[in-house]
C-alpha cells in the first residue's frame, strides 16, 4: 500500500497491477525493434532471415563483413566530430543568445525574440536549398564543415536556456555586478557554472540529434559516406539489402547514444523537468 498517496487515491492491487502490465507491454513494444536489430546482427549470415526470437548460434560475421566493406571506425570518428562540434557550437550560440534575451534589456527585445522563435516554425525543407546553394558558393559541399555550420544555431537551445535563465535569480547577477564582474565575466563565472547540469543535458540532446541526422549530411556529402548514418545506405541496393552488415553497422551506430543515455539519463530528465517548473 502506498503510504504517501493522498486520501482517496490509493488504488486497488488489481488496478495497479493492470497499470504495470500495460506499461510493461508498451515498454516491450518500444524495445523490440532494437532487440531485433541486434539479434539479426548477431545471426550467422545464412540465418539473417530466421524468425527465431533468440539468435543461435551467435556469430560476429556480420560485424566483420561490415568492417571489411566500409571504414566503420572512420565513419564513427567523423560522426563523433560532427556531433560534438555541432553540439558545442549550438550550446555556445544558444547560451549567448539566451543570456542576452533573459538578462538584458535592449530595444526591440521582444519582437526580436519572437522573430527568433518564429524561425522554429520554418520547416527544414524550406531552408535546405538556399543553405545548399550557399554552401556550394562557399566551397563547403562534400566537407564535414558543410554539415556542421548551417546547424550551429539551435532555436531549441535558445528557448530552453532562456527559460532557465529567466528563472535564474536576478540577485545573483546583481551581486556579481556589485562584486566587480563585467557582463562577460558574469556569464562565465556565475551563469555557466550554475547552469552546468542544464548545459550538459542540452549538449547531450543536441549531440544525439546531430549523431542521428541523416537527411542534411546526405545532401551535403553526396559522393562520400563520411558519417555513419550515410554508411548504412551502402548496404542497401537495388538488388536487395545486405541485412547482416546493415544491422551490425546500425547496432554500432546506436551504441554511443545508448551509452550517453545510460550514464546521463538522470541529468537529461532532470534538466527538462526543471525547465518547465520554475
Amino acid at each position: 500500500m502506498d503510504e504517501t498517496a493522498p486520501v482517496g487515491e490509493r488504488g486497488g492491487i488489481a488496478r495497479r497491477a493492470g497499470g504495470h502490465i500495460m506499461l510493461g507491454l508498451l515498454g516491450l513494444l518500444c524495445v523490440f525493434p532494437i532487440y531485433w536489430l541486434y539479434a539479426t546482427s548477431l545471426r550467422a549470415p545464412q540465418d539473417v532471415y530466421e524468425l527465431s526470437v533468440l539468435p543461435w548460434p551467435l556469430s560476429l560475421d556480420s560485424y566483420a563483413d561490415a568492417m571489411a566493406k566500409n571504414d566503420v571506425a572512420g565513419m564513427l570518428l567523423n560522426t563523433a566530430i560532427v556531433a560534438v562540434l555541432s553540439a558545442l557550437g549550438q550550446l555556445l550560440i544558444g547560451l549567448l543568445a539566451a543570456y542576452a534575451f533573459a538578462a538584458w534589456r535592449f530595444p526591440l527585445q521582444r519582437p526580436l525574440y519572437l522573430l527568433f522563435v518564429g524561425t522554429w516554425l520554418v520547416p527544414f525543407q524550406a531552408t535546405m536549398l538556399p543553405n545548399y546553394a550557399l554552401l556550394g558558393q562557399l566551397g563547403l559541399l562534400e566537407t564535414l564543415a558543410g554539415v556542421i555550420i548551417p546547424t550551429l544555431c539551435s532555436t531549441l537551445g535558445v528557448l530552453l536556456l532562456r527559460e532557465h535563465l529567466m528563472s535564474f535569480p536576478k540577485e545573483l547577477l546583481d551581486a556579481a555586478r556589485m562584486d566587480g564582474r563585467s557582463a562577460w565575466g558574469i556569464l562565465w563565472t556565475v551563469v555557466v557554472p550554475t547552469l552546468r547540469p542544464v548545459l550538459a543535458a542540452l549538449g547531450i540532446l543536441l549531440a544525439i540529434t546531430a549523431w542521428n541526422e541523416y537527411f542534411w549530411p546526405a545532401m551535403v556529402l553526396q559522393r562520400s559516406n563520411a558519417v555513419i548514418q550515410l554508411g548504412l545506405r551502402s548496404f542497401m541496393g537495388t538488388e536487395g539489402n545486405d541485412w547482416g552488415p546493415l544491422m551490425a553497422t546500425a547496432g554500432l551506430a546506436c551504441l554511443p547514444v545508448f551509452a550517453l543515455y545510460l550514464f546521463l539519463q538522470r541529468h537529461i530528465v532532470n534538466a527538462f523537468v526543471r525547465s518547465g517548473l520554475k
Binding site: 545573483l172 546583481d174 551581486a175 562584486d179 564582474r181 557554472p193 550554475t194
Partner: peptide, 18 residues
C-alpha cells in the same frame, strides 16, 4: 556598479551556489 566602490548585501543573500 563594479567601479562604484560600494558593497551590497541582498535580501536573498545571493550567494553563488557553485
Amino acid at each position: 556598479p563594479r567601479r562604484r566602490d560600494l558593497a551590497m548585501v541582498f535580501q536573498s543573500y545571493a550567494l553563488y551556489p557553485h
